[in-house]
Design a protein around this nucleic acid. Structure first.
Length: 919
RNA sequence: GGGCCGUUAGCUCAGCUGGUUAGAGCGCAUGCUUGAUAAGCAUGAGGUCCCUGGUUCGAUCCCAGGACGGCCCA
C-alpha cells in the first residue's frame, strides 16, 4: 500500500498550536503602537459619530491588582466592540495623582515625620516625582494588557491644564453660590496640634470613663413626651423624669447638641418609684441593673415617634433635641446617643442633617475655651473627672465606671486623638436644590445592574454637606484669600478665575510661589471690613473633587461627547467617583455626565475571600500576565460574570487556559486550510448551497447574537455563545469538511466552497473575539495570507457581523448534529465504514430539503455531513439513523468505501482519487 | 450592627413572566481516531438547584426566617 499522505491537502499554517503569549504579547503591543492601529481605525470611524467610554482614574500609587485588570480590560473590551462596530470610540485613560496617600508615601520615602517642617514647594516636587513614577509604571502595565487608548495624551490630575479645570470648576461653583465656609469635625491631635486624616490614625487600647448620664425633662418636656407616648396621666408632672445616655468621653458633654435615637427601635419609659427614665427597651435590663426587677414599663414607642422632643442639658441651662440616626446600635449604651456635632464624625453628619449648632469649645492644644464656661482652660482629658464630679453633684450621674477599649491614636506621637470642629469649605447639597437635582439626574441614567440606580440614589440622599478643603500640601489649592485685617476667609470667583488662568500655564505650584497681588482683581477689598491686605489660604481641594471633574477636563473636547456614553467602575464608586462626578456635573452643567453606569464586581480568591498577599492568594496584574499571558487573563475576564463578584486563582486560570487552547486550535484549523486559496477562487455566500450555506448562515447568525450580547454589555453571555459555537462548528462542519478539504484536488470547486466558508467564518469569528482575545485574534489575522486579508492591515480593521437569527437555520443545524452523533456513537463501525440508512420524519425531511434543495443533493449532503461512505434516505414516522456496513473496499487515499481498481496505476484507490493522482 | 448583592454539577456559568427527564463549556471516565495529533470525534458518570418554613394542584424560580460569602457604611 502506497503512502498517499503527501498527495493530500493537509492543513498548514504558521499559526502555532503553542501560544507563547509571554513572549509574543509585548511585541504585539509595540507592533500596534508602530502601526498606529488604534489611531488609524479611529480616523476611519471619525465620521460615524462618537461612542465614548470615560475612564474613571485609578489612583497612581502601588501596583495594579487583578481588580484593576478586570476593570481595565472590560473597559477595553467595550471600546473595541464600539471600534469594530465602526464607531469613533476614542478612549482617554486617566490617572488620579494628587492626594494624601501619595503625600504620605513620599514623606515616608524621605524619612520626614512632620510635613509642616518641609518647604511646600519642595514637598510638592517630591510628590510629583513619586506620582509620575507610579503613573508610568501603571501606564506600562495597562498597555501590556493589550488595551487601546490615547496613552500619549492621558489626562492626569497633576497636569497644569487639569489643575486649571479644577479651579475653574470651583469658580463656577462660587458664581452659583454653591460653596460656603463652615465648621467640620475632623480628627485632631492635641499633641501635634494638627488635623489628621483617616489614614493617619492607629487604634490602640485606652482606659476611659464609662458613664451613664441623665438628661432631665422639665415639666413642659414631660408633657410633650406624654403626648407622644399616648400614656395619658401616667407621666406625672411632679416626678422627675429623664433620658439616659451613655458616653466614654465626658468632656464632650459641653459640646452636646442632641440625643440621637434609632428610628426603628423601641424606647420605653420605666417607673422606678422615685423617678422615671427613658431607654431603649432592648437595653433596659442591662442599663437599669438590679432596679430592672422592680421597674414598671409605663409605655413604649419607636424612636421615630420621639423625634424633635426636647430634654435639658445636664450641666448647662439649655435644651437639647432628640434626633434620629440609623447608626445608633442596641448593643452598648442606652440606645440614646449623646451627640456632640463638633466632636464626632457621626455626630457631625447628624448635626449637618438637623442643622444643629456645631459646638467645639476646644482649642488646638485640646484645652476648653471660654465657651465651655466653668471648664475654660482645662485640657479635655483632665476635665473628665471634673465633669463627672459636677454631674454627680447635680444628681445627673446614673452610673460611672472605667472601661478599656480600642481608641484612635495619632500614628506619630501615639497620643489619643479627639474630634474637633474647624473651619472648612463646603459644597452645599441644598443650595440651588442640588441634592434634588442630582437625584433627578440619576433617573436619566441607565444602570447595569439595575439596582445600581437605587444604590446611587441612596448615596445622593445620604450625601452630607461636601467638605472639599484639606489642610495638606499635595493637591490643587482652593484659591481662597484671608483678609489680614479681619481674618475672614474669602472665596471670590474673580480670584479663582485668575488662579485658573495662572495655573493653566504655570501649574498650581504658582499658588505657593506667587505673591498674592497676582490674583487680586483691580480695587479688590474685603467684603467684610474693606481691608485691602490679603494672603493666600493654604488649603487644597479634596481629591474626590478633582476626580469628580474629569468629565469637565476630558469630555466635550476634541470631539468627545458630554455626557459620555458609559462609565465602568467597581461598586465602591457609587459612593466615590460616580457620585462626585454626578454632583459636580449637576451643579455646573445641570445634568448627569454619563448615560450609562456599569458596575463591575470585586475579584476574590478561589475560596471567594478577598485576595491577600499574606494568605498567598495575592497576585498583581503584572505578575499574573508574566505567568499566564494577558490573553488567557482577558478570556478569564470574559468567562466570569463581571457584574457580580468574581473568583481568580490558579485553578480558575487552568480551566480558562484549556478553553483558550480550544479556541486557538479551531482557529488553527481554519487557517491551516486557507493557505492555498486564491482570491479569485473565493465563492461568494449567495453561490453556496447545502451544508456550506447552512454552516455559514449558522456562523453568521451566531456572530450576530454575539454582537447583540455585546450591545448589552453582556460580555459573559457573548463568551458562552462563542465557545459553544466553536465547539459546534468543529464537531459538525470542520469534521465533515476534512474529507473534501484534504482529499479533493486543490482547485476542486467543492474544496473551494468549503474554504470560502472557512474564510468567512474565520473573519467573523476573529472580529467577534478580538475585543476579548485581542492578541490571539491579531496573531491569527497576521497568519492569514496577505492576499486574503485584502488590505485590512489589522484584525481591528474588521467589523462585527450583524445578521438576524433564523430559527430554521438553528433547527437544521441541530438536526444534522444529532444525526451525525448517532452515526458516531456506533462502537462497531467507523465513520467511512458506514453506509447510513436515514429515516426522516416529514417535518425533518422538509427542514433538510430547505437546506439541500432536492433529494440528490440531500443524499450527497448527508454523506458529507455524517462522514459516511453512502446514505440512503427514507421516509419514517420518527427520524432515526441505522448504520449498515458500506459496500466496496477502503480507498487507501480518501478512506471512503468504494469499488477500487479502476486505475491500473493506482489499484488501491477509488476512481476520484485516481483521477486526482493522474492530474 | 445596618444597607445592598450573591449561593444551580469538581470549576466557570445558562435557566425568559412558577409546570423542562434542570442545561452548556471545561475537567473526569470510557471508546474511536492517529491525515487539526501536547490535537479531533462520540458516549457516560456527576446536582437534596445553601437550609427551614409558607403560598400554590405544582417552587430552582414567589414570600418569610436562617446559614455562608462579598461590598459599602458604622
Amino acid at each position: 500500500m502506497s503512502d498517499y499522505r503527501k498527495t493530500l491537502n493537509l492543513p498548514a499554517t504558521s499559526f502555532p498550536m503553542q501560544a507563547g503569549l509571554r513572549v509574543s504579547e509585548p511585541l504585539r503591543v509595540a507592533w500596534w503602537q508602530e502601526r498606529r492601529t488604534y489611531a488609524r481605525r479611529l480616523e476611519r470611524n471619525r465620521t460615524a459619530g462618537p461612542w465614548i467610554l470615560h475612564d474613571g482614574p485609578p489612583y497612581a500609587n502601588g501596583e495594579l491588582h487583578m481588580g484593576h485588570f478586570l476593570n481595565m480590560v472590560l473597559k477595553d473590551v467595550f471600546v473595541k466592540i464600539a471600534l469594530l462596530d465602526g464607531k469613533w470610540a476614542e478612549f482617554v485613560p486617566g490617572w488620579d495623582m494628587h492626594g494624601l496617600p501619595i503625600e504620605l508615601e513620599t514623606l515616608k520615602h524621605l524619612g520626614i515625620a512632620d510635613f509642616h517642617a518641609v518647604d511646600p514647594l519642595e514637598l510638592r516636587a517630591r510628590c510629583r516625582e513619586r506620582a509620575i513614577y507610579w503613573f508610568e509604571r501603571q501606564r506600562d502595565v495597562r498597555m501590556r494588557m493589550g488595551t487601546f487608548g490615547e496613552y500619549d495624551r492621558p489626562y492626569r490630575t497633576i497636569d497644569p491644564q487639569y489643575e486649571a479645570v479644577i479651579v475653574d470648576a470651583i469658580a463656577d461653583l462660587v458664581e452659583r453660590d454653591q460653596i460656603y465656609r463652615g465648621l467640620r469635625a475632623t480628627l485632631w491631635c492635641i499633641h501635634d496640634e494638627t488635623a489628621l486624616a483617616e489614614a493617619e490614625i492607629e487604634y490602640e487600647n485606652k482606659t476611659s470613663p464609662s458613664i451613664y448620664v441623665r438628661f432631665p425633662l422639665s415639666s413642659y418636656q414631660r408633657a410633650a413626651l406624654e403626648e407622644r407616648l399616648s400614656s395619658s396621666g401616667r407621666v406625672r408632672a411632679d416626678e422627675p423624669a429623664s433620658i439616659l445616655i451613655w458616653t466614654t468621653t465626658p468632656w464632650t458633654l459641653p459640646g452636646n447638641a442632641a440625643i440621637a435615637l434609632r428610628p426603628d427601635a423601641e424606647y420605653a419609659l420605666y417607673d422606678l418609684g422615685d423617678e422615671r427614665v427613658l431607654v431603649a427597651q432592648a437595653l433596659a435590663e442591662r442599663v437599669l441593673g438590679e432596679r430592672y426587677a422592680t421597674a414598671t414599663c409605663l409605655a413604649s414607642v419607636t424612636g421615630e415617634q420621639l423625634e424633635d422632643l426636647h430634654a435639658s442639658h445636664p450641666l448647662y441651662d439649655h435644651d437639647t433635641v432628640i434626633v434620629l440616626a440609623d447608626y445608633v446600635d442596641l448593643e452598648t449604651g442606652t440606645g440614646a446617643v449623646h451627640t456632640a456635632p463638633g466632636h464626632g464624625a457621626d455626630d457631625f453628619e447628624t448635626g449637618m442633617r438637623y442643622k444643629l449648632p456645631i459646638l467645639s469649645p476646644v482649642d488646638a492644644a485640646g484645652r476648653f475655651t471660654a465657651e465651655a464656661g466653668q471648664y475654660a482652660g482645662l485640657p479635655v482629658f483632665d476635665a473628665n473627672a471634673r465633669i463627672i464630679g459636677d454631674l454627680r453633684a447635680r444628681g445627673m450621674l446614673w452610673r460611672a465606671e472605667d472601661i478599656e477599649h480600642s481608641y484612635p491614636h495619632c500614628w506619630r506621637c501615639h497620643h489619643p486623638v479627639i474630634f474637633r470642629a474647624t473651619a472648612q469649605w463646603f459644597i452645599s447639597m441644598e443650595r440651588n436644590d442640588l441634592r434634588a437635582r442630582a437625584l433627578a439626574a440619576v433617573d436619566t441614567v441607565a444602570y447595569t445592574p439595575q439596582w445600581g440606580r437605587e444604590r446611587q440614589r441612596q448615596m445622593i440622599e445620604r450625601h452630607p454637606e461636601w467638605c472639599i478643603s484639606r489642610q495638606r500640601t499635595w493637591g490643587t489649592p482652593i484659591p481662597a484669600l484671608r483678609c489680614m485685617q479681619c481674618e475672614r476667609s474669602i472665596l471670590d470667583a474673580r480670584v479663582a478665575r485668575a488662579a485658573a488662568q495662572r495655573f493653566r500655564s504655570a501649574g498650581a505650584d504658582a499658588w505657593w510661589s506667587d505673591g498674592v497681588e497676582r490674583y487680586l482683581p483691580a480695587g479688590f477689598a474685603c467684603p467684610a471690613c474693606g481691608g485691602t491686605r490679603f494672603e493666600q489660604e493654604r488649603n487644597i481641594v479634596d481629591i474626590w473633587f478633582e476626580s469628580g471633574v474629569t468629565h469637565l477636563a476630558v469630555l466635550g473636547r476634541d470631539g468627545l461627547s458630554w455626557p459620555c456614553d458609559a462609565v465602568l467602575e467597581g461598586a465602591d464608586q457609587y459612593r466615590g467617583w460616580f457620585r462626585s462626578s454626578l454632583v459636580t456635573a449637576t451643579a455646573i452643567r445641570g445634568a448627569a455626565p454619563y448615560k450609562h453606569v456599569v458596575k463591575n464586581g470585586w475579584v476574590n480568591d478561589e475560596q471567594g475571600r478577598p485576595m491577600s498577599k499574606s494568605r498567598g492568594t495575592g497576585i498583581d496584574a503584572q505578575e499574573a500576565m508574566e505567568r499566564y499571558g494577558a490573553d488567557v487573563l482577558r478570556l478569564w475576564a470574559a468567562s466570569v460574570e463581571f457584574v457580580d463578584d468574581v473568583r481568580f486563582g490558579p485553578n480558575v486560570v487552568e480551566q480558562v487556559t484549556r478553553v483558550y487552547r480550544n479556541v486557538r486550535n479551531r482557529i488553527r484549523f481554519m487557517l491551516g486550510n486557507l493557505g492555498d486559496l486564491p482570491v479569485d477562487a473565493i465563492v461568494p455566500p449567495e453561490r453556496l448551497g447545502g451544508l456550506d450555506a447552512l454552516a455559514l448562515a449558522y456562523a453568521m447568525q451566531t456572530f450576530g447574537e454575539i454582537a447583540s450580547k455585546y450591545d448589552a454589555f453582556d460580555v459573559h453571555s457573548a463568551y458562552l455563545r462563542t465557545i459553544a459555537f466553536e465547539s459546534e462548528m468543529s464537531a459538525l462542519y470542520f469534521d465533515a469538511m476534512k474529507d473534501p478539504l484534504y482529499s479533493r484536488a486543490t482547485g476542486d470547486p467543492r474544496r473551494r466552497r468549503a474554504q470560502s466558508v472557512l474564510l468567512a467564518a474565520l473573519e467573523g469569528f476573529l472580529a467577534a473575539i478580538a475585543p476579548v482575545l485581542s492578541f490571539t485574534a491579531e496573531e491569527a489575522w497576521q497568519a492569514l495570507p496577505a492576499h486574503l486579508r485584502a488590505g485590512r492591515d489589522s484584525v481591528f480593521d474588521l467589523s462585527l457581523v450583524r445578521v438576524e437569527s433564523s430559527e430554521r437555520t438553528a433547527q437544521a443545524w441541530t438536526l444534522l448534529r444529532s444525526l451525525r452523533a448517532r452515526v458516531s456513537a456506533d462502537g462497531t463501525l467507523r465513520d467511512f465504514e458506514v453506509a447510513a440508512e436515514v429515516m426522516l420524519s416529514k417535518e425533518d425531511r422538509a427542514l433538510l430539503l430547505d437546506v439541500f434543495a432536492d433529494d440528490e443533493h440531500l443524499r450527497e449532503g448527508l454523506c458529507e455531513a455524517l462522514v459516511v461512505s453512502d446514505v440512503e434516505v427514507r421516509d419514517g414516522v420518527l427520524t432515526q439513523v441505522r448504520n449498515q456496513r458500506a459496500h466496496g473496499e477502503k480507498c487507501a487515499r480518501c478512506w471512503k468505501y468504494r469499488s477500487l481498481g479502476t486505475s491500473a496505476a493506482h489499484p488501491d484507490v477509488c476512481r476520484e482519487c485516481a483521477a486526482i493522482l493522474d492530474g
